[in-house]
Design a protein around this nucleic acid. Structure first.
Lengths: 188, 188
DNA sequence: AATTAGATAGAACGGTAATTCTATTTTTAG
DNA sequence: CTAAAAATAGAATTACCGTTCTATCTAATT
């Protein structure tokens, strides 16, 4: 019965357009046109544009974690390198237009809605994820390491806008490898 | 005779509001209200909103380079650490809402205007600046070093939105120091 | 004081934004 | 097939967008 094909089409079109032109730069008309549906169908599924934005962010977060989890499984390299590569692969699937969550924080800051909260929660979860990863690597200072990695991933995302995801990821990887070289050499 | 006090007020208000709420999130009404002037005064000085955005970006770029130049003069530390600190100080003077130039690239991508070009030029100039800096430090691979620094500065800016400029800068500085430790230790 | 340029408030314009309403058609379930 | 539910097109609404026009007013220079 195609439970909600139209809803999925709306979410898909919204995510693409929001990422490409920003939340405030896309109108509902454009969204329903790209989703090939009607305005009332959108309002039948989402109570408002903000509600649509919220669900787009929740879905995107889910997909990001799925992507990261499945790509980090392939071990063999240092976990820090692996996560940098996984993040880079995620960026490479898109058009390098920055980070949708940071943009949400920026665009909806100050206005009383759940959007900023969803976006900030995602970033906190990213930090927690990297903290867990750093702990497994037996880092004495996993708290610092998690922050280093967060900064590198965010830097990679920004730089992908300027020189592309592949190059940006290569530089991030080089930084991680240079950093990890230090303790081993110094200990020995 | 106060050549153009109103123009300066308009540019000042525009820069603040654009940075705070995004280019598409701020209307001309809000700008003239904050600048305490009239709509026709704005159009007397700027042919359009896009022209206003362009001049805001040009002014901001000037101020950024002035700020960086004056803060990098204070030597004593490794130039890479100094530039990270200078960039962090620049961020600390603001409200940590990301990077205005990256946002301009994202918001005005695809539309045929000079805004994206101005913003991308600024980022190219940043890379050139860091390339020169890396050359002076007698880096054999200054090209890579310049990209590492760019990535770290961009990462710092993004992360400042999440944990504040001071903390983000401290982590960026730690990364630079960890990286610079490598060659010395390995050579010795 | 007269002239001139700049600044002012306010309305008007056409366009588009988000949201709501209505009425018709299509799809699904019993 | 029939009844209920979902989707449709299109207009209406209210509000704001960037831009332009007009007409008044203020401050500068001569």
């Amino acid at each position: 019965m195609a439970k909600s094909k139209k809803k999925e089409a709306l979410l898909h079109a919204s995510e693409r357009l929001f990422y490409e032109h920003g939340f405030h730069g896309v109108g509902l008309k454009q969204i329903i046109h790209e989703a090939d549906t009607a305005l009332m169908t959108l309002y039948n599924h989402f109570s408002s544009k903000e509600a649509l934005v919220e669900e787009v962010l929740r879905r995107r977060e889910e997909r990001y974690w799925s992507y990261l989890d499945s790509h980090v499984e392939q071990e063999g390299e240092h976990p820090f390198v692996t996560v940098v590569k996984a993040h880079g692969d995620w960026l490479a699937t898109e058009s390098y237009k920055g980070d949708m969550f940071l943009r949400a924080i920026e665009d909806y800051a100050g206005t009383d809605n759940d959007i900023e909260h969803i976006a900030r929660s995602h970033k906190e979860k990213l930090l927690s994820y990297l903290r867990q990863l750093a702990k497994k690597v037996d880092e004495e200072n996993h708290e610092d390491a998690a922050h280093y990695l967060t900064l590198l991933l965010e830097g990679t995302t920004s730089m992908a806008t300027l020189i592309g995801a592949e190059q940006a990821t290569a530089y991030a990887r080089a930084i991680v490898e240079k950093m990890n070289t230090v303790p081993d050499e110094q200990r020995g």
